[in-house]
Each structure stands twice: as C-alpha cells, then as structure tokens.
Nucleic acid binder design. Structure first.
Lengths: 218, 218
DNA sequence: TTAATAAATTAGGTTCGTCTAATTTATTTT
DNA sequence: AAAATAAATTAGACGAACCTAATTTATTAA
C-alpha cells in the first residue's frame, strides 16, 4: 500500500495535470501541498523509484498509468465520502472537505464499492464534481463557466471551481443551489457584473469573480 | 493531534490494563503491536514526555487520565464504525475489524457523534462489546463466561472474548447468534465439553475453549 | 548574449517509528 | 545466595518525510 503522503502527492499531481497541462512543476506541488520545494524533490525521486511518476530533473513530473489509477481511486473515495457526509450525516457542503481528506485514505476497494452502492451510485459529489466509477473512469463534464455566457443564455447550476467554505457559504446565502436553473438577464460592460435570474424568479447581481467560479450545464 | 501509532499504543495499553491489571509490560505491548521490544521502550519514553502514560524504567507503563481519554475515544470510534459497516453496508461481523482499525483514527469528535446519531445510538458493537458514550464512559458489562455456568443454567448470548474471524465463523456455522438464549443441558466431566440448547431447541456440543470465549447475560 | 532573476537541486540536519546486537536489570531455579 | 534465564534497556542504524542554507540550472530581461 501507499502512504498517505504519497497518495496526497499523487492526488495533487493529478489535479495540477488536469488543470494546467502535461507536466507539473516542483514549485506548484510545494505550494498546494504546503511543503518546501526540497521536500518535493526528495519525494518525487522516491515516487519515481516506485514507478508512480516519471520525473526528469528540473523538468517537472507527471503520473504514470499506475500513479493515475491510484490518484483517481483516491478521488473516487473522497467524493463518495463527501456524499455520505452530506446525504447521510447531514453535513453542509462547505463542511465536508477536511473530513473527506481523511476518509479518502481508507484502503479497501470493497468498502468503496459497498459505500457507492449504499449511496445509490451517485454521479457527483455535493459540489457537483463527478465521481469516477469502479474502473477509474471519470465522466468528462460538459459544464462551462457562467462567465462564458452572454445575455439571455441559461443553464443548470451543476458545479463550482472554487471549493472554499467562504465561497460555498456565499452561494448558500445568495440563493444558489446545485441543480437549479440560472438565466443571465444582463451583463454590465463597465465592471463585468452579472445580473442573474435564479429559481423562483429571484434576481441577484454577482461579480465576474463569482461568474467565473460557477459551472453550468445544457 | 496524535499519530496513528501513538493511538494504537494507547489502545493496546488500555486493553492490556483492562485485561491483566494495573501495569503493562514492554513485552506484552511488543507482542500485541507486533513490533520489537526496543521500539516499545522508545515509544513509551516519547509518550511519557507527552503525559499520555506514566512510565517507569523496567517497571512497566500505565495510562494517564489524558491517555485513557484518548484510548476510550478510539475504542468509541472503532465500535461505532463496526456498527456502521455491519448495519448499513452489509458486512458480516467477522469482516469488519481491519476496516474499523483504519476508520477509528479519523479525527473528528463531531463526525463520531453524528455517526452515533445516524446509527441510532447503539449500545454495543456487532460483537457485543459496549460502546463508550460521548463522555468516554464505558458501561460496565455484567456478562459472564459460559464456562462459569453449571448444568441447567441459562442466559442470553451477548458477547465474545475471542474476536478472531475463524472463531466468529465457527459460531455462525454452528448456529450461535448474538441476542439468542442459550441453556446448558449438560457438562461432560471427562473433557469439559458443554451440551447447549440454542434458540429453536437446537442442541450443540462445544469444547471448553468455546465455552470460555462466550459471554452470557442475565 | 550576457546579466539578473526565478526555479530546482544538493548537502546536511531533524523527528518519528522502526530495527539488530550488546548490555543491563529482574526474576526464577537450583 | 548464586547461577541461569528472561525481560528490558542502551547503542547505533535506517527509511520516510520534512526542514534550512548553499548551489546549480532555467528562464527572462536588458
């Protein structure tokens, strides 16, 4: 089995690769993992020895197929446990991340699959992030940022790109709820604020920053 | 927070203290934790430094109040997760120990309490072991070993002292089930075998070893 | 294209939790 | 009580995962 630390590196590399391209820099990893760069260099060497990543000195790192499998497995665990915490234990969507960070490292494929079944094979976690299936296949999302919408466009709110508790709280307070329809009533040229019509005709005005963190589908 | 290793030491010390008296020997710990004696000596020094145990060189170790609190908290977690695995995910009682050994180290009092509530505040785990409450109070069990019974005595099967999967499987196969009544029909003087009447009048013969691992109440 | 800056690595150290081999302390047995 | 055995500790090492300070390698700017 892999250590928690290794698994956290794998997850971080996976996410950075998804977000920013093929190869991940030492400094990016150091930043997201909150360790110093030499620790990362150290760890990457060890992980390369275990064939979890391919690492070229001063050229960055990427996952091997084996590393990718492990990373996706952890993401599957994480998102399933988030669903459990929200659906079964009554946690709010802004409270579950840290707990899921612990639970994701429980090592048992069988447990993961039984949990999946218990939860009714959910397709997405409480933030709308897709849950990889038992084969490590992660459905490609077709959601787009609200910030790409024009006046009159509409869609369904299906995800966020900012997972911070403060942002999620702001959404709650303002009346955003996953699965609800959103329509763009207007976009102010001057400061790029969006006037939106939420479910129940409620109108709200949000900044570009917010529009750029909301994912809509259809 | 405490490391998993520390928590496992605390749990082991607690259990040995409960079973065999006040002070726990280095060698006993080494045996149950499956490490070598010098590792234990080392660890106990560190833990004494953290006021989790009182340790006197060559004289054994015992928990401080602080250490006891942590140990009981972990046992609470362990047993609640076992209930979850059996009641909600459909695991059998002989399959849950190793998973619960992982889950018990999730650090969140709030999660533990929400889980407790979700499970309906169970009093005992799937093996009949009592679950400490949120204040770390563990109900004193009045159950006694079947091996202390005389002919004609009867009681309710409420726990085991051997938690091994092989023993639990044997019980399943032979027709023992937690909560069922058991009556002693006879005890063979020669080899101390017990003839028992189980629920539904089924008669079975078990060895002293088995009788000495079953806990009965009332 | 050289100089300045930023990124990454090497070198050397630390703590945690483990090990083996050697030694000391306790407990039994004679 | 002395000798033999068993239990525990000390000494010295090691790997994992981290650190700081110094150095090297890449990248960007002049």
């Amino acid at each position: 089995m892999h250590s928690f630390t290794e698994e956290n590196y794998l997850k971080a590399i996976y996410k950075l690769q998804e977000a920013n391209g093929l190869v991940v820099a030492t400094s990016s990893l150091a930043q997201v993992l909150e360790v110093h760069a030499p620790s990362v260099t150290d760890m990457l060497k060890r992980m390369a020895g275990k064939k979890l990543v391919t690492y070229q000195k001063s050229k960055g790192v990427k996952l091997t197929e084996k590393g990718r499998q492990v990373a996706v497995g952890i993401i599957r665990n994480h998102r399933l446990w988030e669903v459990f915490l929200v659906d079964k234990l009554g946690y709010k969507w802004d409270e579950v991340h840290d707990l899921a960070e612990q639970l994701e490292h429980i090592h048992s494929e069988d447990l993961t699959n039984k949990l999946d079944s218990f939860l009714g094979f959910p397709k997405a976690d409480p933030h709308g992030d897709p849950i990889p299936d038992a084969n490590g296949i992660l459905p490609k999302s077709k959601a787009v940022l609200l910030s790409t919408f024009a006046e009159g466009d509409q869609g369904t709110f299906t995800g966020v790109t900012d997972h911070s508790a403060t942002f999620l709280n702001y959404l709650d307070k303002t009346g955003f709820s996953l699965g609800d329809p959103i329509k763009v009533k207007g976009i102010e040229k001057y400061d790029q604020t969006y006037t939106l019509q939420l479910k129940g005709k409620k109108e709200v005005v949000v900044s570009f920053k917010v529009a750029n963190s909301l994912l809509l589908s259809q």
